[in-house]
Simulated assay, not measured.
Amino acid sequence: MEYFRQRYHEYLNENGPVEIAGFTWENADVFEKMTTGLNGEKGDYEATFTVFVQDQIQLAKERAREFLEETQCLDRFRALSARKQNGQVLPFVGAGMSIASGYRPWGAFLLSLLGDAPHIRADVEAMLGRSEYEEAAQLVHDTLQSHVLAEEIANQLGRHRPKTAGPVCLLPRLFPNEVLTTNFDYVLTHVYHRAELPFAYEFCGMRLREARQRIGNDPHCLLRLHGEADASEGRVLTRNEYDAAYNGGVTLTNILGALIGTRSLLFMGASLQSDRTHAALRDIRAENADAPVRHYAFLPLPADNERAARRAFLAEAEIHPIYYPADDHDQYIEDLLLTLMGGGLDD
C-alpha cells in the first residue's frame, strides 16, 4: 500500500547511509536497486515492503483496541465495522481531515482573512466561540465584500494546491463510492485521483438536489454540501447563502435524507457542533423515530465532566461517538481507518 512507502523508506534508512569511496547512498535506494531483477521486478524489496505494511496494520489494530477499550467504545466500533463490511457506511469528511495537508480549520481560516479588517476580529472570535459559524462568515463577507472573500477562498483552498497528506489518503481504499464533505478544498479530489479512482461526478451546493437521480448508475461521486473553492456559484457559507440555498421546500434535511437512505454516516474531521448538519440529522431522526439509522463519528475524547453532555447532544441526531485520545488526531484516526480496512478488530 503506497500510503506506507515513505515510512518504509524511513525505516530502511534508520541506520544511516551507505558510504563507499566517498560516495553516499540511502539504504532504501541501495536495497531497492540491489533486489531489482533484470526485467524490473522488485523481488525482496517489495516482499519486505508487504511484510512492513502488514506489521503496520497489525500495530494499528493493537493500538485501536487499547484506546477503544479505554474510552469504552469497543463495541460501538465493532458495530460500525460490521456495517462497513456490509457496504452500509457513507463517509462524511470535515475540515479536520485536511489539516495534515496544510489547511486551517474553518474558524482559523476566517480569522486569517482579517489582516485588512482587524476591527471586526473580536466580534468574529466571539461568534466562533458561540459556534455561530454562518454569522461569523456573514460578517467577514459583508466587511471584505463578496469578490474579495471569493478570491481569498480560491487562493487558500483552490485546486492549484495539490499537496495531500495524513489519514485522508486512506479513504480511497475504504470508500470507493459516494463521499460527503463540507470542505471547499480539493484534498479529496487529489487523493482519489492519485489513487487512480477519480470521482465520476462532483455535485456541489444546490446541484445536490439532482445527485440522487444521477448517481444510480455510477455512485462513485463526491457530494460537496457547501460547494467548492474555485466557484462562488452554489457556494453555501454565509447566513444569506444558506437561506438562499435551502428555500422553496428544499431543505438540507430532505437532501441529506435522500442521499443517506438506510446507510450510516461516519463523520471524520468534523467538529459536530450546533450547526445545520446536526439539525438536519436531528430532524431525520424525528421523522424516523421508530427505527432511526445510527450514525458514527470519530471524535477526540472530551473531558470527563463534559462527556455526558456531549453524548446527549450527539444522540439528538442519532450520532454515536467513537472516541480517541485527543493528543494525536492523525495517528488515532489512521489507526481506526486501518482497522476498518483490515476487516475490524481480531477477536
Rank of each mutant, 00 (worst) to 15 (best):
G37A: 12
L114Y: 05
D243E: 14
E10V: 07
V179K: 03
A309L: 11
L266C: 00
D328S: 05
G37M: 05
R214Q: 09
G216W: 10
E152C: 13
P17N: 01
L208I: 14
S101T: 11
A315I: 03
A270W: 03
G249H: 04
H190N: 09
L197K: 09
S271R: 02
L252H: 08
Y45T: 04
E228L: 02
L174Y: 01
A64W: 04
E316Y: 05
A317V: 05
L252G: 11
A297R: 00
G96W: 08
S274F: 09
G43M: 04
G129Y: 03
A286E: 11
M206H: 06
S146E: 13
P300R: 02
E125V: 11
Q58W: 14
L144R: 02
L111K: 12
I215G: 10
Q331M: 13
I153A: 06
I255D: 04
R78Y: 13
D29Y: 13
S274A: 15
L197Y: 10
Q58F: 09
E228H: 15
R263N: 15
S232G: 15
G344V: 01
L144N: 07
H329W: 06
I20L: 14
E334A: 06
D142V: 12
A47L: 09
K42N: 07
S232T: 14
L299R: 01
E178M: 13
A291Q: 12
L188C: 08
E196F: 15
A79S: 10
V18R: 04
L170K: 00
N39S: 15
K163H: 15
F92N: 00
E178Y: 08
Y45M: 11
V293Q: 03
T182K: 00
P167M: 03
G94Q: 00
G129P: 12
V187H: 00
P176N: 04
G102S: 08
Y192R: 00
H160T: 13
R310D: 04
